[in-house]
């Protein structure tokens, strides 16, 4: 296959404990560490491994967002992507708009495979890959934990609630990644230096003709209800008594 396209989202790093602003207008992101969405990192790693096995020629990493998304694309290039495209916008895109933008890039690049994370850990929506597949009128294989390519087809093992489901899809197709697909590589310093020379194209969102008007209006952000800290017991007898007092055993 010629090309694999991987979409990555810049999100608050998964180690950051996200807090809601006191006025309920959003969450605190000032000065917070930002990273590639972990599932998207797995998506990129998978694409790189496919290329390294000689089953693909080129890996293109793309993102949508403000100019600071270039940091995450540079990380993607340092991991080994061949080139990067940033669709630049200051607006916050809902998944449907993101899928419409990605479809425009697909029309330009004609990849045979598009890999994304199964969800972004900020909005936890889990929608973009499925929507992209629908708009592209192509198969989707979501929550992948194993991906095999053979003559124009992908055999994908999916992590579903009932266990592992295996499906076969014709290429081109959209795959979204689950945790156990692979373990992404660490980026080494020389790779970061090399990545600076790799091409990173910027396309203004306006050039793609995709509207960004939000369909959903967020009117308030609130911290979750906290569970109260309970009691500590000394031993198993104490535990059993506490359970009995609550009528649980």
């Amino acid at each position: 296959m010629q090309k694999i396209m991987v979409a990555v989202k810049r999100v608050v790093d998964y180690n950051v404990r996200v807090r809601v602003k006191p006025d309920g207008s959003g969450v605190v992101t000032d000065g917070v560490k930002m990273s590639i969405n972990p599932f998207d990192e797995i998506a990129l790693e998978e694409a790189l491994r496919i290329r390294e096995r000689g089953e693909a020629e080129e890996v293109i990493v793309v993102s949508i967002g403000a100019s600071d998304c270039q940091q995450q694309l540079r990380t993607g290039l340092a991991m080994g992507a061949d080139r990067a495209i940033l669709v630049e916008t200051g607006d916050r895109l809902e998944p449907l708009a993101a899928a419409q933008v990605l479809l425009k890039l697909i029309e330009r690049e004609s990849p045979e495979l598009v890999i994304l994370g199964k969800q972004a850990i900020d909005d936890d929506n889990s929608q973009t890959g499925q929507m992209l597949a629908a708009l592209w009128d192509r198969p989707q294989a979501t929550f992948a934990s194993k991906l095999e390519l053979t003559d124009g087809k992908a055999t994908v093992t999916r992590e579903v609630d009932a266990g592992l489901e295996v499906i076969e899809v014709d290429l081109p197709a959209v795959v979204t990644t689950d945790l156990r697909l692979n373990e992404p590589r660490y980026v080494k310093l020389p790779d970061i230096m090399k990545a600076k020379k790799k091409p990173l194209d910027t396309v203004p969102l306006a050039d793609l003709g995709v509207g960004t008007d939000a369909q959903f209006k967020i009117t308030n952000y609130a911290p979750p209800e906290q569970r109260q800290k309970g009691i500590m017991v000394e031993d198993v007898a104490g535990l059993v008594k506490a359970l009995k007092d609550k009528g649980l055993v």
């Binding site: 996200v18 969450v27 850990i121």
Partner: peptide
């Protein structure tokens, strides 16, 4: 609905 692994809960108006 919850976002950020349940660290925030948003109120959303749909069209």
């Amino acid at each position: 609905r919850p976002i950020y692994a349940g660290n925030a809960v948003i109120t959303v108006e749909a069209p």
